[in-house]
Write a protein that binds this DNA or RNA. Structure first.
Ligand SMILES: [Zn+2]
Ligand SMILES: [Zn+2]
Ligand SMILES: [Zn+2]
Ligand SMILES: [Zn+2]
Lengths: 133, 133
DNA sequence: ATAATAATGCAACATTGTTGCATTATTATA
DNA sequence: TATAATAATGCAACAATGTTGCATTATTAT
């Protein structure tokens, strides 16, 4: 927790620790609304600033789902910043419980597009999750 | 244009026609801001309602990009509604011009996740587009 | 312990999207 | 083509989401 903040060279504060705690006890990605509920009493501006910083530092990654709220989840250890992630997982969105999971896949698909230089590939699967089946 | 609206069993209005015209002369996906610029003078509420309807009817599909604005693009002929699309293309987001392209791929990857029922797969590639290289 | 620096919390604001309702336009039918 | 039924538009007002400036407070380096 504090080690993570130290490694990213940002100050260790109570607020940041509590945000990290919330993500650590969760197995699925979280919406901002869910984080707010977990926090109880808090300052909205500080929350937004913290989430923005965590994304910039490669502590959290953002998952944008069409027709749904943005979700956030913890990054892998080796993510550098907003633009240099090193994930090898896909995002699964359950149509029943609407939870979003970060899931490892055996083989991550390669995408080739003539004339385009592909740098990163983000995959989102939609369907019914393990616990809703 | 009018044929499309008729086939979806919704009324033909000037506003809807002008929205469809904007999308037809464009090769890339559009942000709401871009649509507003193209429209010139318009009513914001009508625009939002029109876009919502078009998404529900399978006329437009929404592309959610992490850290960027939502984009919209025309659907394939056989898209039924919001939840029943029949696209076979991926979405490419250029890091230089930030345009979003709908691009056909030779083979659309299959995703298998033990315990999860996959119904749809959305793929987003990021990199440098044809015209920015 | 002190100074330098960064984070927080408040107010105020900006952007984005929604709801209710009267007016206007489209469509079906006679 | 005229009329009635129905749906879309445009306005006001609001709700939700996200941002900026600035004084106060906390963290860190010395
Ligand atoms: Zn589920
Ligand atoms: Zn993830
Ligand atoms: Zn480009
Ligand atoms: Zn598309």
């Amino acid at each position: 927790m504090e080690k993570l903040l130290r490694s990213k060279k940002i100050r260790i504060t109570d607020f940041r620790i509590s945000i990290l705690n919330i993500f650590n006890k969760q197995s699925t990605a979280l919406s901002i609304e869910e984080i707010e509920t977990e926090l109880g009493q808090f300052d909205r501006i500080t929350l937004y600033r913290t989430l923005k910083l965590f994304k910039e530092k490669g502590i959290l990654h953002e998952i944008a789902i069409a027709g749904s709220n943005v979700r956030l989840a913890l990054c892998e250890q080796n993510c550098e910043d907003l633009h240099h992630h090193h994930h090898n997982h896909i995002h699964f969105h359950c149509v029943l419980c609407s939870e979003v999971y970060c899931l490892d896949v055996e083989t991550y698909p390669e995408i080739g597009l003539a004339g385009f230089e592909v740098q990163q590939v983000e995959i989102q699967a939609t369907g019914i999750c393990k616990s809703c089946r």
